[in-house]
Design a protein around this nucleic acid. Structure first.
Lengths: 142, 142
DNA sequence: CTGTCTGCAAATGGTTTGCACCATA
DNA sequence: TATGGTGCAAACCATTTGCAGACAG
């Protein structure tokens, strides 16, 4: 794929390195805090711009299945994720990704299918711990 | 689950009625425009508040699988959706929803699974039509 | 050198909220 | 009449963008 020439700036390197280092799937803001420890003068704009560049270059994955903040993953291998509906945290699902068969042409009124988005919803251990809550379908991820 | 008592206001009725009427899956703003024809003085806030109330009451579905605007569906029967990656339009998939088996406990590190979110991505007929899309070979309008 | 990238700050845009008045039950 | 609901405007907040100077190639 012919992409525009891209420069290999220090910011870009550090952002990718730090994302690769963490086991979790940080938000842009999380990553900003992390990167800031090495580059005190970076700006959020730079973090956002680079996450965008890296993700369209296929070097990282952007996970934004909910209406929530996007989260990022340096592991580009195909794998599913679970998202905590309470705190928004995202974790990997350690099994082969589910095979999702695309709907037949006649079931989608002219749409040309190019993929799908699947993500599990759950409650993470931490949230379950202090959770004085009850019924499964939590209202909102606030 | 103890829910607060809810009043049956004219705004609430109209919002639900109009949503039930349309075949598409409008955004809050779309619905605001529609509802405004019957209630010229409604506010966006009221539309948002009621869509929230109706959806937590299970009377409508809130579709916000992407990072995009939420869309709403008065059809609460289980069914999948396709979202146009160009214009954001959402349509129903006319087949039995795919059975998604939740990951086993040992594959998700303590998360308690409560559901999943699946949505197909595609290009709608309209967008495909005028689509001057490119990617590899840079098109030259000249 | 040149054109991309950065930092800063201000702008977006969808959604939410505070408040005083209104209307449903 | 008691309270949930409404309209309005301002607040929020993640993300984007305009701009001038900085720096990679």
């Amino acid at each position: 794929m012919s992409h525009k020439p891209r420069r290999n700036t220090r910011q870009r390197q550090v952002i990718l390195e730090e994302l690769a280092k963490v086991k979790c799937h940080p938000t842009a803001a999380d990553l900003y805090e992390i990167v800031r420890r090495r580059l005190p003068r970076v700006s959020m704009a730079t973090v956002y711009r680079n996450l965008e560049v890296l993700s369209s270059a296929g070097k990282i994955q952007k996970l934004q299945s909910g209406g929530e903040q996007a989260r990022f993953d340096a592991d580009t291998d195909m794998h599913d994720h679970v998202r905590c509906v309470r705190c928004g945290r995202v974790a990997d699902v350690e099994r082969e990704p589910l095979v999702v068969s695309p709907p037949a042409a006649e079931d989608i009124e002219g749409f040309q299918i190019i993929g799908h988005r699947l993500e599990y919803l759950g409650v993470c251990p931490d949230c379950r711990a202090d959770a004085p809550n009850e019924c499964p379908p939590a209202p909102d991820p606030a």
